[in-house]
């Protein structure tokens, strides 16, 4: 499977490494042509305001909307903000591909960033707890009926999926634990078979 990592800005290198660890072919994506040559896409962590500007500059925002109707996208942190339907604190436009309301920097500033152990919901495909790194992270304040919550922290959803897409408000790419990336890869394979 060839998985693209949007490399406009952010921790795309960490995502590429995590994807390679689970046996996927990871490629950096900066143009529409590079995007089309992939089976799925990761929107990494970073600054969502910066990414949104660069996406628009190259007309990639429109391309992504079309791509998302056909192929899976996994967003982490800033990527989750880009995929959400509504963004607050401050209000910001987004790609609106998942039925989520997201509040930016909802835990506070960098000093409020944290590493915690989170417990998957019953029925989620993770049997053991997951270490979650939150960095100036957003909080999912509301999710639509089609959204399935896989992991919560303090009662808020932090790993969710809706159809072929998935978002994490934490950074699985910054830990040695590859299960979240493995799970996304399985989703991509399932999608390719369907």
């Amino acid at each position: 499977m060839r998985i693209g990592v949007m490399a406009l800005q952010g921790d795309f290198a960490a995502h590429c490494e995590a994807l390679r660890r689970v046996g996927a072919e990871a490629v950096e994506v900066r143009t529409a042509r590079e995007l089309e040559e992939t089976d799925a896409l990761v929107l990494p962590g970073g600054e969502s305001t910066t990414m949104l500007k660069l996406l628009r500059l190259e007309g990639l925002d429109g391309k992504l909307a079309d791509y998302g109707r056909r192929k899976p996208i996994f967003g982490t942190c800033a990527g989750a903000i880009l995929l959400a339907k509504h963004v607050s604190s401050p209000a910001q436009e987004s790609l609106g591909m998942m039925d989520l309301d997201v509040e930016r920097n909802a835990y506070g500033r960098q000093i409020d960033s944290r590493v915690v152990t989170v417990h998957p919901e019953p029925g989620a495909q993770f049997d053991e707890p997951v270490e979650a790194v939150f960095i100036r992270a957003p909080i999912i304040r509301k999710s639509g009926p089609g959204v399935r919550v896989l992991i919560r922290y303090n009662g808020d959803p932090v790993l969710v999926e809706e159809g072929r897409h998935m978002v994490a408000t934490f950074h699985p790419e910054l830990t040695a634990d590859s299960r979240v990336h493995q799970y996304f890869l399985e989703k991509v394979k399932g999608q390719a078979r369907a």
Binding site: Q9, G10, D11, A78, R114, R136
Partner: peptide, 14 residues
């Protein structure tokens, strides 16, 4: 330390 360098990771390419 991971949180500290983690924020720097988020700034890459910027």
């Amino acid at each position: 330390f991971r949180l500290k360098s983690g924020l720097a990771e988020m700034l890459k390419g910027g």
